[in-house]
Amino acid sequence: MTNKNKTVVRSMDILNLFIDHIELSFQEVIELSGIPKTTAFRMLKSLEEMELLEKGADAKYRLGILFLKFGHLVSMRLDVRKIAYPIMNELHNDTKEAINLIVRDGDEAIYIEKVDTKQKVRLYTAIGRKSSLYAGACSRAVLSFLPDGEIKEYLESIELKPFAKGTITDKERLYEAIVHAREHGYTISHSELENYTSAIAAPIFDHTGEVIAAMSIAGLETNYQEGRAEIFVEKLKMATAEISRQLGYEQL
């Protein structure tokens, strides 16, 4: 084990103490962890600077504000997944297409749920897999409904790279797709993440009106022709609207 790894492990040993203890003094941290005094002091200082721990006026340490932020994110993702899953199942049984649920993870989206038991072809999407926010209907459904400033900053900083033959690699075209999504309430993609596949996606909003997730119907490109796409759009928008409603979103 390298010195760097030892530092990480020992830091986790300290943080794990707070699973069973709301607050601890410096001396209590030393006694419970078995870490030498000087090492413990240095680690506590670093954890405090990173907001993983906070030191009160009583000189006792408690879990810091960063854990509240992480806890909120984990809670939000669990909540949307729990609410969405039965609706995803219903939509899958109706359309026989794969149904995906994603949340934002920085400049990427991560797939946190998928229902595809009746979809015979395995697609690019899989739980835990990530994709860039610009690529694919589901990811772009989140990007399109971010605040204007965030979208502008993203478009200025991102380099558009192709993943399949239909990936949007032109920023003007990407902006047009974002405008279309905002006007119509959904996104559509053809061969953007994987050749010969299509997807239709719509955003999911929380009680503050913030886009926190997106859901898509996805399958072989041939299934999204001759008016079927329009049918999928209406079914999907009804499903995502219901998830948003259960999350406390009130559409004006």
Rank of each mutant, 00 (worst) to 15 (best):
A141S: 11
D79W: 02
K60G: 06
L236Y: 05
Y196D: 14
G209E: 08
T240V: 15
M238E: 09
D116R: 07
E31K: 00
E28I: 13
A229D: 12
E48P: 03
K69Q: 10
E159Y: 02
F18R: 00
Q225D: 06
A201E: 09
K165W: 00
K237I: 09
H207R: 15
H21E: 06
D58A: 10
L52Y: 15
Y154S: 13
K4N: 00
I188Y: 07
A141R: 01
N5W: 05
G227Q: 06
E176L: 04
T240I: 04
A239L: 11
K152C: 07
R77D: 15
F205Y: 15
A214W: 10
I178C: 02
L174E: 06
L220P: 08
T7C: 03
F163P: 07
L101T: 09
E242L: 15
Y196P: 04
D116Y: 08
Y249M: 00
L73N: 11
T125I: 01
M12L: 15
Y124N: 07
S46K: 13
Y249L: 01
T187S: 10
T167Y: 03
I35R: 07
T117R: 15
V179Q: 03
G149L: 03
A59N: 15
V211W: 10
S198I: 01
A213V: 10
D170P: 00
A98T: 11
I19Y: 10
I19C: 03
L160E: 08
R122E: 09
K37M: 06
P203I: 12
H184V: 14
R81P: 02
E230S: 13
P147N: 11
E150Q: 11
Q119M: 13
H207I: 04
L143F: 07
G185A: 07
I65E: 14
D107E: 14
N93F: 11
V9E: 03
E210T: 14
G34F: 06
A109K: 00
E54I: 10
D79Y: 02
A135P: 05
N89W: 07
E234L: 09
E54A: 13
H92F: 06
L123Q: 11
E156W: 10
T39G: 07
I200T: 08
L193T: 01
T240Y: 03
T38A: 01
S198V: 04
F145S: 00
G128Y: 02
I212P: 14
A177V: 00
M238W: 02
E31P: 02
Q251C: 01
K120Q: 11
K37R: 13
Y134N: 12
G227R: 11
D79R: 04
E234T: 12
I22K: 12
V115Y: 12
T39N: 12
S75I: 05
Y61C: 14
A84S: 15
N5V: 08
L236R: 03
A109L: 12
K4T: 08
M215I: 15
R62Y: 00
Q251R: 12
I212K: 15
R182G: 14
F163G: 02
L220F: 07
V233Y: 06
T39K: 08
P86A: 07
L155P: 13
E90M: 12
I83F: 12
L220W: 05
I19S: 03
R62D: 00
F232K: 06
K69E: 09
G209W: 09
E156Q: 14
